[in-house]
Design a binder for these strands. Structure first.
Length: 904
RNA sequence: GGGGGCAUAGCUCAGCUGGUUAGAGCGCCUGCUUCACACGUAGGAGGUCACAGGUUCGAGUCCUGUUGUCCCCACCA
């Protein structure tokens, strides 16, 4: 309980004493010298949860501010990339919440159809089970169990990171509402003719046994072979030579193509060749797709297993022979090779070709091979019946809203170019997957009349023939089909909820660059199509988090960083701060323990500043309000605080989160701790009780308000300390964000204080250069035309510049003294025994040269008429001021040198 | 093949629409058992802002080219 009996209770277990409105506090002993985040973070998070401050409701008196979380996959646990995904928005949300917005930070998880299914299949393998053994229903039961287990774990980890999400509104891409939205969209697009089913060339993963969209295929450089083959002409007049990287596909060859202009082969066009091993007669066709310069200029055409060949096949009306099973093995069309797995077939076919004399040579070749994004199995192009979204009409408005600036990308140029490039060349989106875990396609086939029924509700009868024999399409939807609806499906769409009206469109999205096509682009066209409105106003792309050597984090390198370990070791605040300081949007970030340690040190610095203040206010009546009267340094720190408040707010508005963080860091460490606290010590130990009290109040006020600025970045430690200081209001998380106050801006006093600080630094530097220990004090004479600031800070100068005494005046003549010169004054330190006159003269001469050079520079500028004519006034004034200072400095140095000459 | 990023101190990186003397963290060197903090404090060394041109009164910043490096898209069998 508070000594003053105000009844205020402490947040259980805090290291600091009770919080208290009156400012009277218990005297605290035995505070840990180093900040220990583990205990604090847990307790503070509970405190926030109990306070209900993460929850947002539509409120007509407030402006909405919305961020939806990129839903992490439920495949496992959080990695440091997620920490990046989530820290940035959490900073923005906490900031906006403090600014009084109804700030909604909407979390959730993604069912991640293919990724999750693959994991479950792997896990089942260990039990010796396959999907088919279990059957669809049992498999889905397992999947939901998986979701319970891992979805929950992710949320726990996000809480440890300090995310201030509205957990009550947490969503899952396969929950009831999202599933309804998915069906609604599917039916709507189908009815508009924007979803169709058809037989097309698609990418197929033989391992996952499903179709993939184009962007789910990643090209990897592989070392392979280039087999040069000879196909005999049917008329026995010779051979035609060609080369291939996939000899097994020859089983499905239905032609050989050459370029129509190729003189070497013109005479052969129209003739036939005998396909070796298969003995099928296939034509030689002419097609411009063939590049004359590559290989022999002859291409074998396999329309069923190559997208280009498929096109050639269409142009020449070639038969399509599918020779591959779902698992990549050769099917019955492969004759004697039927049943062989792809690689086996390749080996056997090469062997047989060689034996038959059809193999000319084998060359090594590095080429790009498409692989499944999930399992990295080589993807096979394959003809198959799938569902597609027709893209061209959807892409147009999605390009438009970025072009006209309704949606802004950051970094702008880089992101928009990438986006346009993709959107403008977009192909139809293959959305069906031969998987079980996901949204099942809402299409039913009538077994009697063949009618396809696409419906939001499960149909009983065929609307065409009335048959009851309907079966649902076996396939599920691409996992991104549901995440594309995330910004509005999570707000209740297709219902017209209050939330949807209030919070949509959302404000910012903070995704990684890697999902610009998968997710960002698709949300944009979905938002436009279904809501008629953009899904978000700004997209801030962040870069990749790399390891200390700059390598991509990957399982194979085992260089991934577990954010939970980092939090355990350094604290969540340190991790969060580390992820944003010194970074700019869109650029990759290197992660190292040293970097987190730097942020941890900052937390500790803050902790100790608070500890110092507690040592001075505990047990005393210190309200956290500004005093009536300010000293020079009070005005200086308050004025600095105003500037920082203004700048940090502006930086956040421009999403310059890294710059904002460094400004708070510098202010707190350099200005507040290294200068203001040091100055405060003098005043609080001095005889002037009123001034000592004022000092305490200013210390409290500045720290308390700086905590507000820092809170979005380092929420835990700031809340902990803020609660321990005299404060108004329940919690820092809902305190008002500081607003720039002109009444507390003192530019003149700031400049005066800087003069004093420059003198102190100059003296310290000179002493340090001469290796004088702080214990050895020296008298200081300060020569200045304007003594007010130096007089006001007399005590400070003595203490911080290690003076035994201080005299301030217009002119001194001091023998055997070390001289320091700043822009505003000259100081003498009589240290006869330490003064090496020759060295002093050399040093002063060097300094004079430097000053003269700078002065000449400035004067040259000022005498340049075009500069005066064209440069803005503030720049000219700056140069003028600087020249004036330099002239004074030159004069003072010259004077000192003269004194040495005359020996006085 | 097309597009883009990056190149600034020993290392990792900031540097907004061009504007006074280019900054930070870490590392390094030198003082300091100063009554918040050695996860500290006070100083110091260290940069031709990749290279070559150009625009401008003025360029780390804008333009062109060159080199190195990384990424994205396309996918020549």
């Amino acid at each position: 309980m508070c000594q003053a009996g105000c009844g205020d209770e402490k947040i259980a277990g805090g290291q600091f004493p009770i919080r208290c409105e009156t400012g009277v506090r218990n005297v605290n002993t035995e505070l840990a010298k180093a900040y220990e985040p583990q205990e604090v973070e847990k307790r503070i998070y509970d405190f926030w949860m109990k306070g209900g401050w993460f929850h947002a409701e539509p409120d007509p008196n407030k402006k909405p501010y919305t961020i939806v979380m990129p839903p992490p996959n439920i495949t496992g646990q959080l990695h440091v990339g997620h920490a990046m995904d989530e820290t940035m928005p959490d900073i923005l949300i906490r900031w906006k919440r403090m600014q009084g917005y109804s700030a909604l930070w909407l979390p959730g998880t993604d069912h991640a159809s293919i990724a999750t299914e693959a994991k479950i299949v792997d896990a089942m393998k260990e039990e010796g089970l396959t999907k088919e053994d279990l059957g669809r229903e049992k498999f889905l039961e397992r999947a939901w169990e998986w979701r319970e287990k891992y979805g929950g774990r992710i949320v726990e980890q996000q809480k440890l990171l300090g995310l201030s999400c509205d957990w009550e509104r947490s969503r899952f891409t396969m929950d009831e509402g999202c599933s309804r939205a998915v069906r609604h969209v599917f039916v709507k697009l189908y009815e508009k003719g924007l979803i169709y089913r058809g037989e097309r060339m698609i990418n197929w993963c033989p391992h996952c046994k499903t179709a993939l969209s184009d962007i789910e295929v990643e090209f990897e450089e592989q070392h392979g072979s280039f087999w040069h083959l000879r196909y005999p002409l049917a008329d026995g007049s010779g051979y035609i030579e060609l080369a291939t990287t996939r000899p097994e596909t020859m089983l499905g060859d239905t032609a050989v193509a050459v370029h129509p202009e190729d003189e070497r082969y013109k005479h052969l066009v129209g003739k036939n060749v005998i396909l070796p091993l298969v003995n099928r007669e296939i034509p030689i066709v002419a097609d411009e797709y063939v590049e004359m310069d590559f290989g022999t200029g002859v291409v074998k055409i396999t329309p069923a297993h190559d997208p280009n060949d498929f096109e050639v096949g269409k142009r020449h009306d070639l038969p399509i022979i599918n020779v591959m099973n779902e698992d990549g093995s050769i099917n019955e069309n492969g004759g004697k090779y039927a049943g062989l797995p792809g690689m086996e077939a390749r080996k056997q076919i090469v062997k047989d070709l060689e034996a038959g004399g059809y193999l000319i040579k084998t060359e090594p070749l590095t080429h790009n091979v498409g692989a499944c994004q999930r399992c990295h199995t080589v993807a096979e192009p394959r003809i198959s019946t799938q569902w597609f979204v027709k893209m061209d009409s959807l892409a147009k408005p999605a390009i438009g809203v970025v072009k006209d600036g309704r949606i802004r990308f950051i970094p702008e140029e880089r992101a928009t170019k990438t986006y346009y490039n993709w959107m403008e060349n977009i192909k139809d989106w293959c959305i069906s997957r031969q998987l079980w875990w996901g949204h099942r396609i809402p299409a039913w086939y009538c077994e009697d009349c063949g009618e396809i029924v696409v419906s939001e509700t499960d149909p009983d009868t065929c609307p065409k023939c009335g048959s009851k024999h309907l079966h649902q399409d076996e396939d599920t939807l691409d996992t991104w089909f549901s995440s594309a609806l995330w910004p509005f499906s999570t707000l209740g769409w297709p219902d017209e909820t209050e939330e949807l009206k209030y919070y949509y469109p959302t404000d910012v999205l903070v995704p990684g660059f890697d999902i610009i096509f998968f997710w960002v682009a698709r949300m944009i066209f979905s938002g436009m199509e279904h809501m008629g409105e953009i899904p978000f106003k700004t997209v801030c792309f962040h870069g990749l988090v790399r390891d200390a050597q700059g390598r991509k984090m990957s399982k194979s390198l085992n260089n991934g960083v577990d954010p939970m370990e980092v939090i355990e070791k350094f604290g969540a605040d340190a991790l969060r701060m580390c992820l944003v300081t010194g970074n700019s949007m869109g650029n990759d970030v290197r992660f190292s323990d040293e970097k987190v340690a730097a942020s941890r040190n900052f937390a500790n610095k803050l902790w100790n500043a608070a500890r110092f203040i507690h040592m001075n206010i505990d047990g005393k009546h210190v309200p956290c309000v500004l005093p009536e009267a300010f000293s020079l340094e009070d005005k200086w720190i308050l004025s600095r605080f105003q500037s920082v408040t203004k700048e940090v707010t502006e930086n956040l508005e421009k999403f310059e989160v890294g710059v904002a963080a460094s400004k708070i860091y510098d202010f707190l460490w350099d200005d507040f701790c290294d200068w203001f606290i040091e100055l405060a010590k003098i005043r609080m130990n001095g005889p002037d009780q009123a001034d000592a009290q004022n000092t305490r109040q200013v210390l409290c006020w500045v720290l308390s308000n700086t905590l507000k600025l820092l809170h979005p970045f380092m929420p835990f430690i700031t809340e902990e300390i803020w609660q321990s200081l005299p404060h108004e209001g329940e919690a820092l998380i809902i305190a008002s964000w500081p607003v720039y106050d002109e009444a507390l801006h003192f530019p003149e006093e700031e400049r005066e204080m800087v003069k004093v600080m420059e003198l102190i630094t100059a003296v310290r530097t000179r002493r340090s250069e001469m290796n004088v220990p702080p214990s050895r004090k020296a008298h200081l004479y300060v020569e200045t035309g304007n003594s007010a600031a130096f007089e006001a800070e007399r005590e400070a100068i003595c203490r911080l510049a290690y003076c035994s005494g201080l005299e301030i005046g217009e002119s001194f003549s001091v023998d055997g003294a070390v001289t320091v010169v700043t822009a505003a004054c000259k100081g003498y330190l009589p240290m006869d025994d330490l003064v090496d006159k020759a060295a002093e003269i050399a040093r002063l001469t060097k300094e004079l040269e430097g000053a003269k050079k700078q002065l000449a520079n400035a004067e040259a500028k000022l005498s340049n008429e075009t500069f005066i004519g064209k440069a803005p006034q503030n720049v000219i004034d700056g140069v003028k001021d600087n020249a004036e200072k330099l002239r004074e400095k030159v004069r003072m140095i010259e004077e000192s040198l003269k004194a040495f000459d005359t020996g006085c």
